[in-house]
Amino acid sequence: MSDQLLFAMEVTLNGLMAGVMYALVALGFVLIFKASGIFNFAQGVMALFAALTLVGFQTGQVPFAHLINAVFGTRIHHFGWSVPTLAAIVATMAVMVLMALLVERLVLKHFVNQAPIILFMATIGLAYFLEGLGDVMWGADIKRLDVGLPQGISETIDGTTFGWFGYGFFIDRLDIVAALVAAALVVSLTLFSQYTRQGRALRAVADDHQAALSVGISLRAIWVLVWSIAGFVALVAGMMWGTKLGVQFSLSLIALKALPVLMLGGFTSIPGAIVGGLIVGVGEKLFEFAVGPMIGGATENWFAYMLALVFLLFRPQGLFGERIIERV
């Protein structure tokens, strides 16, 4: 086999893995969109916020340390203890649930019956607020996140492919873990929405708000639930991305890339989020590999958006989305 083909195969595999990471963020978007019709722009920032909080708890940082220091002239930074990873994850999850409650109380409640585009802009505001809050709470420096996930080249795949082709593929072990986690997430979310009481209520709300209300489902409770689940998905995505790149502001930009993923897959489909993620991941890696060097590289910045734009011209509802029917 020629070298170029082997490289292309390696790039494709890595693209698939990167695509899984995008899909992780996109999942959170789809969940909220299905249950409340809200296009939650803040999902990416939620992942960043969750990762920041996780690191903060883990290393025993004092929340709002900078603010407290600035106001009272003290010099506190750390409690001086470190929390075991699992406990920190549970605590972070608690924070995300609290956030879901507050978002419902303070924001969503007031937007019932508003146009979707108004809600969309409100979530942009929410994204800004959370971004500022994360920085004020935990400081804006780049942090290392270590939750014990494996990292570095996978020796097994390297060895196996070397045996097959005489060329070892480089695959990050973290990416493999991410793929497994994403699969587990999708399966458990599907089970949850198909076989539990809450899950059924959730699907009812997604189907029709008013009908769900009329059979006694509390819309507000469901919203809190959905935002909590989205918070959980954000936490998982934040853990993966944070381990990969360090916890920093650019995480929320990566999360923006979940948007073209969604547009490809359709806003309402969980499998769509996964497939869209894979297409975007493979597409941008192959494009960068094949065309990138000719036109200056770093095409990953925009390729996903352009792909989605061109794709939408031909199929506005995405691959798996429900057909858009408009009535006057």
């Binding site: 937007f111 802009m121 409100a122 929410l126 800004y128 920085d135």
Partner: peptide, 17 residues
Amino acid sequence: AHIELMIVGALIVLFLI
């Protein structure tokens, strides 16, 4: 700058409400 982000974000939501 961070507090400004928070204020702007909160104001957006507040205005929309």
